[in-house]
C-alpha cells in the first residue's frame, strides 16, 4: 500500500517534470511562428505558369479562416461569413433562374478551366460530377458533396428553391461557411448564363435529374 502510494508520487513528479519541459519547449517556437514560416514558404515556392499568376495564392479573409479552422468555425465568424456571402450574390439580370438543362449537363460534366494547362479563352466547366451524384445515367460521380439526384423532385421548383440554388452556386458560403464547394459566381468561374443552365439541370422537371 505504502509502496504503491510512493510509486504514484514518483510518477506524478516525473509527469510534472516532463510537462514542465514540454512547456518550455513549446514556448520556444510558437504556433504563430510556424504560421509566419508557412506564409514565407508559400510566397517563395511558386512561380507563374501559363494563365496562372502567383496572385492565386492571395487569400481573402474567408480563405484565411477556413484554412485555419477547417469546417469548425466559431459561430460568430460563421454567421458573419454567411451573411456577407449572401449579401454579395448577384441575382440574374433578367430575373430568370432557369436555363437549358442540356447545356447544364455539359457544364456539370466539364472539369476544364483555370489551370496552368488551360487556354485563356476556353469556357470553364463546373466540375460538378467530380463531387456530386447528379443524373442516374452518369455513374462516374464523386462523393465529396451530397447527391443531387432528384433534387428538383424532392425540393420542387418554387422561386424560393430557385433562389437558394442560384445563391448556393454563386457563393456557397452563404449557407455553409468554409464549404469545400467553390464560389462559382463570386470568383467568375461560371457566368450568369452558365449558372442558369445548372439551375435548370437541378430543378427543371424535364431534366434527367428529376425525370429519370
Amino acid at each position: 500500500m505504502n509502496i504503491r502510494i510512493r510509486q504514484g508520487a514518483v510518477a506524478l513528479a516525473v509527469l510534472a517534470t516532463v510537462a514542465g519541459c514540454a512547456g518550455t519547449g513549446a514556448s520556444r517556437v510558437s504556433s504563430a511562428d510556424y504560421d509566419k514560416d508557412a506564409a514565407a514558404v508559400m510566397a517563395a515556392s511558386f512561380r507563374e505558369q501559363g494563365i496562372v499568376k502567383t496572385d492565386r495564392l492571395t487569400q481573402d479573409e474567408v480563405m484565411v479562416a477556413c484554412s485555419k479552422f477547417g469546417h469548425s468555425l466559431d459561430d460568430d465568424l460563421r454567421e458573419r461569413f454567411q451573411a456577407a456571402a449572401l449579401a454579395e450574390v448577384k441575382w440574374p439580370s433578367d430575373g430568370k433562374y432557369i436555363g437549358d438543362w442540356k447545356e447544364g449537363e455539359k457544364i456539370a460534366q466539364s472539369g476544364r478551366g483555370l489551370t496552368w494547362t488551360d487556354k485563356p479563352d476556353a469556357a470553364n466547366g463546373g466540375n460538378c460530377y467530380n463531387c456530386h451524384r447528379i443524373t442516374k445515367k452518369e455513374i462516374s460521380y464523386g462523393t465529396i458533396g451530397p447527391s443531387l439526384y432528384q433534387y428538383g423532385k424532392v425540393h420542387g421548383s418554387t422561386e424560393a428553391t430557385q433562389k437558394y440554388v442560384w445563391a448556393k452556386i454563386w457563393n456557397p458560403n452563404a449557407y455553409s461557411a468554409c464549404t469545400n464547394m467553390p464560389r462559382f459566381g463570386t470568383h467568375g468561374i461560371l457566368d450568369e448564363k452558365q449558372i442558369r443552365h445548372i439551375v435548370a439541370l437541378l430543378l427543371d422537371p424535364k431534366s434527367p435529374v428529376n425525370a429519370e
Binding site: 510556424y34 508557412a38 492565386r56 495564392l57 480563405m63 484554412s67 466540375n127 467553390p182 470568383h187 468561374i189
Partner: peptide, 20 residues
C-alpha cells in the same frame, strides 16, 4: 519539426479561383 508544421499548414492552405 518546423518543416512538418509548415507542411501541415500548406496542406490546409485554401486559395485560388476554387478555394481548394
Amino acid at each position: 519539426k518546423r518543416m512538418y508544421e509548415i507542411g501541415k499548414r500548406a496542406f490546409n492552405y485554401r486559395g485560388g479561383t476554387h478555394d481548394f
